Simulated assay, not measured.
Amino acid sequence: MTVDRGQWTLLEAQPGKGDVLAEFLRECHGLAASETGTVAWLALRLSETTFGLLATFQGEPARRVHLAGAIPAGIAHAAGELLAGEPDSRPVDILGAT
């Protein structure tokens, strides 16, 4: 298995909404686990209000499927209620993975 693509996203919660966003991201884990092309999906809490997401894939087609899927749609839907600003999402190349 060659993991060569990823998607890195930073999310900033509105003041007082960090725990709500954390729970929302915990619930997204099941969605990520059901995506056949997603090799790994990690949700990280970096501070009370800052969160990071890292998803890894085997190839560009799998990344595109993920980006068109339920997790990005759910984040976009919840953005007005939970996020202090737009998500900062960037494609990344995976240089090494174990």
Rank of each mutant, 00 (worst) to 15 (best):
H77C: 02
T9G: 09
T56V: 14
G6I: 05
A76Q: 11
G69T: 10
L11P: 12
D19T: 10
E23C: 10
T98P: 13
T49M: 12
W8G: 05
A78F: 02
L83A: 07
S47M: 09
L46F: 12
A43F: 03
T36L: 14
R63T: 07
W8T: 03
D19N: 07
L10G: 03
H29K: 08
E81C: 06
L42Q: 07
T36K: 14
Q14N: 00
Q14Y: 01
L44Y: 14
I71G: 07
A70G: 01
G6K: 00
A84E: 03
T56K: 13
V39P: 14
M1K: 10
G69K: 10
H66K: 05
F51D: 15
R45V: 14
Q14K: 14
V65N: 12
H29W: 01
T50H: 15
P15G: 07
L67H: 08
P15Y: 01
E81G: 05
V39F: 13
A79E: 02
G37K: 14
G30R: 04
G18P: 11
G85T: 03
A55M: 13
L21V: 03
E86W: 09
L95E: 00
P87L: 00
L25R: 08
T36S: 15
S89F: 02
A68T: 03
A78Q: 09
A40W: 08
T36R: 15
A73V: 05
A62L: 09
L10P: 03
R90A: 00
L82A: 07
Q14C: 01
G96W: 09
L11D: 09
P61H: 09
A33N: 06
P87R: 04
L83R: 02
A32G: 04
G59W: 10
L10S: 11
D19F: 06
V39Y: 13
L67I: 08
L21D: 06
V3Y: 00
L46D: 10
P72I: 00
P15S: 01
G96Q: 08
D4A: 04
T49S: 14
G59R: 14
A22Q: 13
P72E: 06
T36H: 13
L42T: 07
L10I: 09
E23M: 05
I75M: 00
L82N: 03
R63Q: 12
